[in-house]
């Protein structure tokens, strides 16, 4: 499944990151790589963008970008 379909509070492992090079580069420099656990922590009033948590780091992503991140189907 992709990151944007995560439910609130759900925590999954990143299995793949696709999308354009610029986007992947940006995520990589933020330390967001395969194998990390990612959790949906907040949703904005319109359901987009959303806040995700990796460890103590919180990042805000739009759904358009979140679909590029594949996460594991179960914990």
């Amino acid at each position: 499944m992709t990151l944007d379909s995560l439910a609130r509070g759900q925590s999954r492992k990143i299995v793949n990151i696709s999308g354009c090079g610029d986007f992947r580069q940006r995520l990589a420099t933020l330390g967001i790589l395969r194998g990390q656990m990612i959790q949906l922590s907040a949703v904005s009033p319109w359901g987009n963008p959303k806040v995700y948590r990796l460890g103590r780091q919180q990042i805000c992503l739009r759904n358009e970008e979140a679909v590029c991140i594949q996460v594991s189907d179960n914990d």
Binding site: S41, A42, V43, V51, Q58
Partner: peptide, 21 residues
Amino acid sequence: ENHVDISRIDSWLDRITLNRW
């Protein structure tokens, strides 16, 4: 670091300020 969680106060503040409604 990944096993250290956000502090109680921080996540409480976020739960309120980032609340959808």
